[in-house]
């Protein structure tokens, strides 16, 4: 089986970010997408703490202690970028103003439900942040996640077993094996990586997939 590594997964998803998009990249693997958007496309990155136009990591010694992203890493502001408060920032998110949100995922269901904020471990304090607002508010939600858990359990399922982040919110799932689109008929494989066959991918998926349309 062909299994993409996270940078390659991010690179594949980045091809589908159109010129002129307003985009929010979630914490973890999704932030890597910014490194791979093809040259010549103008993309404006939003950060939930109040930034439009997030730029690259600052040179050492030039960090602004207040200028951080959602993952609390130092960032910069591009020319044309701006700042605003959290209420306005979440109005952008909830109000349908962002074109694309790229989120990590624990589980996605066949009908596009997303679980990415809590597991079933009661001892571990839950934290939700902006995940629910983004999942419900962005025009398009792409999930970037491995196809299975570390111990090989499927993450794409008939129904999520972890607490939901949002219902019927996911448009596409980019995994290390394939790209899957959530359609009204069900999840459809639209791209298989390397020499992966449809049957290979179906075998590690917890719900029935639709074959690529030829």
């Amino acid at each position: 089986m062909t299994r993409l590594e996270p940078p390659q997964m991010a690179e594949r998803l980045a091809q589908d970010i159109p010129d002129g998009s307003y985009v929010n990249l979630g914490i973890g693997m999704p932030v890597m997408v910014a490194n791979y958007v093809p040259e010549g496309r103008e993309v404006i990155y939003h950060s939930e703490n109040g930034i439009l136009g997030v730029g690259p990591t600052p040179e050492p010694g030039t960090e602004d202690p207040d200028l951080i992203n959602a993952a609390k890493q130092y960032v910069t502001l591009i020319n044309g970028g701006c700042y605003f408060d959290t209420a306005d920032s979440f109005a952008m998110m909830r109000g349908g103003h962002l074109d694309i949100a790229v989120l990590g995922g624990f589980q996605v269901s066949a009908d596009g439900n997303l679980a990415n904020w809590a597991t079933d471990n009661e001892k571990y304090p839950p934290a939700v942040g902006g995940a629910m607002d983004l999942s419900v508010g962005a025009k398009t939600v792409y999930v970037l996640m491995r196809h299975t858990t570390k111990d090989g359990q499927p993450k794409i399922l008939d129904a999520c077993t972890y607490p939901l982040t949002g219902t019927r919110v996911v448009s596409r799932i980019y995994t290390d094996l394939a790209v899957i689109e959530i359609t009204p008929e069900g999840p459809r494989v639209i791209e298989l990586f390397g020499d992966n066959s449809f049957d290979d991918v179906q075998a590690v998926t917890g719900t029935r997939l639709l074959a690529p349309q030829t």
Partner: peptide, 24 residues
């Protein structure tokens, strides 16, 4: 959710009795 958190405080400051959000 973070947007609900911010908006609940904004509502308090803006004299609103509450609001309906799709989040959550």
């Amino acid at each position: 959710p973070q947007g609900t958190f911010a908006e609940r405080m904004r509502a308090a400051g803006a004299g609103l009795g509450g609001f309906f959000t799709p989040t959550g």
